[in-house]
Design a protein around this nucleic acid. Structure first.
Lengths: 234, 234
DNA sequence: GTATGTTTGAAACGGTTGTTCGAATCAATC
DNA sequence: GATTGATTCGAACAACCGTTTCAAACATAC
């Protein structure tokens, strides 16, 4: 019975999914139009608050197309998140690599800039602003779906940046103190990422990356140094 | 036709709703059991991700009870948020009042402590930890519902704390710089509030208010001062 | 008791949800 | 031109959604 069902996305452990050997150009545009619409709607109304039909309708596609390409609604969210997060992660690691390949030890500000700059990457244009929708979603959408993705994408990054901060801060600073400070860095970043949220009902707070990143670096570097100094003085 | 429909919650502009002149003790426990269940479930799965039936079932009540007491699902969310946010707002204002009633001008750290302490109020016990669920929800649930509530509850608070910070920081610091810094304060706070989120699927990050508040004050005070100093040097 | 207004319960309403199915369409290969 | 596999579409599925309805149960005042 040749009931073949060739889902492009991962099946459990079957033969390699044959990832679209010949992806027709229309298939590419179908996938991307779905991702674009999903990104916009998930950002505005959240995952549970957005119906698959709303996405496909906005994309001008059929519901079954979404299932065919992404395996369902959850797969669509995952793909949407991954598309925007992957470049951020890669940018962070690349900048940190460059920093550590240099001879002299990196300063706290440099490590933080390597972490923050790719977050606001892509300039101030629409694509960059849109890309930042993920921040809000990361902390609100189904944890059993987003949680593993965060660990998979950000696990190595967080470890490496914690190490780099430990090396840049005064020696003897407790690891837990650094972890706590790093969480605050992330928090401040996420909050400013939402400065231009593509959320309906919230008026944007005009800000461009060129303005935000230096402030963020200045603020968080001083914060981390203060934590280390207080630890030192004890 | 005496088809009376005495909703305890607000009707548009009709006569005062007669807010339960004789609230039977069972009615109180009904409302509170609903609020407790709603709080737990909304925190874990979000507003749209939680069905009203799941809430009423967990509370051991009927669906109509929720509609009767809160006017529907949205009213239930609003009541849930309000119950936890109101004390925080009042605590912040009270501490700021006390600070300003004193003779000497408050320091940055004191203003920040007045802002942060009530946020982590209630100690480390379950009620306090549970109360913090709101932070996550505030930035993810339907903006057209939560947005007005935020402005209503936090509008005055934010304005007053911005003024207090402006007075405590070196004179001449640009207002926008302070607003930006304040957003980072909020971001760092929210992030640490989620240190023990009652979210399924995310392992908690053990931390108690006594440990977090001083770190938060230290970190953000240094950050704000750094922003002001850079502004000064220009 | 009766009367009055508040609170609960069970069932049903219309509408929407994510997903599945089977046939139709398309592009490329033999 | 037939075969093969990838893609698209519309229709249908069962399950669930928030809300409403109506009657029973309740407490309190007369």
């Amino acid at each position: 019975m040749p009931r073949s069902q060739p889902r492009p996305e991962e099946l459990p452990g079957a033969l390699p999914p044959v990832p679209s050997e010949h992806p027709s150009p229309s298939a590419r545009s179908t996938k991307e139009s779905l991702l674009d619409a999903a990104e916009r709607l998930f950002a505005a109304r959240g995952f549970e608050g957005t119906s698959l039909r709303a996405v496909t309708q906005a994309a001008g596609q059929s519901v079954s197309a979404a299932h065919y390409h992404f395996g369902g609604k959850r797969g669509l969210l995952r793909a949407t998140l991954e598309r925007r997060l992957r470049p951020v992660v890669e940018g962070r690691l690349r900048m940190l690599d460059a920093l550590e390949a240099r001879g002299t030890a990196p300063r706290v500000e440099e490590v933080l800039e390597a972490f923050l700059r790719p977050t606001f990457g892509g300039g101030a244009e629409a694509a960059g602003a849109r890309a930042r929708f993920v921040a809000a979603r990361l902390f609100s959408d189904p944890p059993e779906l987003v949680g593993p993705l965060i660990r998979e994408l950000f696990g190595e990054v967080h470890r490496r940046f914690l190490d780099a901060l430990e090396a840049a801060l005064p020696p003897g600073t407790a690891r837990r103190e650094i972890e706590l400070g790093f969480r605050m860095v992330v928090g401040a970043t996420v909050q400013l990422l939402g400065a231009q949220p593509p959320r309906e009902g919230t008026e944007p707070w005009p800000a461009v990356p060129e303005e935000l990143v230096p402030r963020l670096v200045r603020f968080t570097a001083a914060g981390l140094r203060a934590l280390a100094a207080a630890e030192q003085a004890r």
